[in-house]
Amino acid sequence: MKRFLCYALLLLWGGVIYSQTEITTNELKEHIAFLTSEANAGRYPGGAKNKKIVRYIQQAFKDAGALPLKKSYKQSFKAQLRTEKEVVDKPIAKTWNVIAIIPGNDPELKDEYVVLGAHYDHLGLGGPSSKSDKKNTIHYGADDNASGTAALLEIGEKLVSQKSLLKRSVLLVAFGAEEQGLLGSKNFVEHPPVPLSQIKLMINMDMVGRLNDGKQVYMGGAGTFPNGVELMKNLGEQCELNPVVHAGSVGGSDHVSFYKKGISVLGIHTGGHPQYHTPEDTLELINLEGERLVCEYIYRTILKIATTSYKMHFIPQD
């Protein structure tokens, strides 16, 4: 108790920001609640609402102590938005990826990177990607992908608290316009802020908020780096999860953009559900404790790769 009080006084008197050392359901819930709020109207690319979400993510990175990679956390790009097939002139929106770095400490390995990513956008009021017959209705996207964005912020914060252990550097990336065709991740790999050859693994979180009663976590791409399948199974068991691990099955989200550039990937999710791409994908259905367990699993994965000299090279999959 005395130790805790001393720590609290240091925070109050010293004005120093310390990264949180634990991933909590309360903070996961707070992040998802903000992202899925009525005011954010489904997180569609472009406009004032998109800017507000980007500012929120930037501030979360800053508060955690994750640094901008260059002078800014933002990587801007223009997204051609999906419309009904009969629309000829597709609208263009300016949007952003949000990027932060937690630098490694090893003289050589610090120039190698693990990318942890999640897309923050969703469908707005529906549009051609909606699975619902409800027109002009907010699609909240709590699982897809407020859950992944919240996980990114929480895992990033915990990684900062352990930054002295890192040999390799970690990039935290919140991708924009994934729902428009993986546009944020495509822009990242076409205009990479670090050499692609130095990115040793990309872990993507897309829909990680609906862990089932069997505690099954699904992933593709574990065979794209040495002993990946065994590693992910073993770490899953340590976290009391039941990982369903595929060596290949690389597809469906932002990690695909990296895989196509010859970069090892893991695409992690907790499975599909009837609320996918409908207005019913809401916070009330998120398994917050389950998501916390998934975050711990991913955190331990990053520690294994980034705090050791784990041999990494790309292994293509059929």
Rank of each mutant, 00 (worst) to 15 (best):
S164N: 15
K134I: 12
H122F: 13
G141P: 03
S161L: 03
E112H: 07
G148I: 04
K158M: 15
E112T: 03
P128I: 04
Y120I: 11
L165G: 10
S164I: 14
E157K: 15
A142T: 05
A151K: 05
S147Q: 12
G141M: 05
L125Q: 14
I138Y: 03
H139T: 08
A151S: 15
H139P: 07
K135Y: 06
V114K: 02
S161Y: 01
H139N: 12
K110W: 05
V160L: 03
E112P: 02
S161K: 00
L125N: 13
D133H: 13
N136H: 14
N145S: 15
E157S: 15
S130V: 03
K110I: 02
Q162N: 15
H122P: 11
R168L: 09
D133C: 10
V115Y: 09
G126P: 02
H119E: 08
V170Q: 01
L152Q: 06
K134W: 12
K135Q: 11
S130I: 02
R168Y: 10
D144Y: 07
Y120K: 09
D144H: 06
Y113V: 03
D143M: 07
D111S: 14
D133Y: 11
G117R: 06
Y113T: 02
S132A: 03
L116P: 00
K158I: 12
Y120N: 09
T149A: 03
S130K: 01
L116S: 01
V114L: 05
G117C: 13
K135I: 11
I155K: 05
L152D: 08
Y113K: 00
K135D: 08
K110D: 03
P128Q: 05
V114I: 15
G117N: 10
K110Y: 04
K135M: 08
L153H: 11
E112L: 04
Y113N: 00
S147R: 10
E154A: 13
L116M: 03
V160Y: 01
K131L: 14
N145P: 07
K158C: 15
R168W: 11
D121I: 07
T137G: 08
D144N: 15
D143V: 06
Y120H: 13
L152M: 08
A151N: 09
I155Y: 10
V170P: 00
I155R: 04
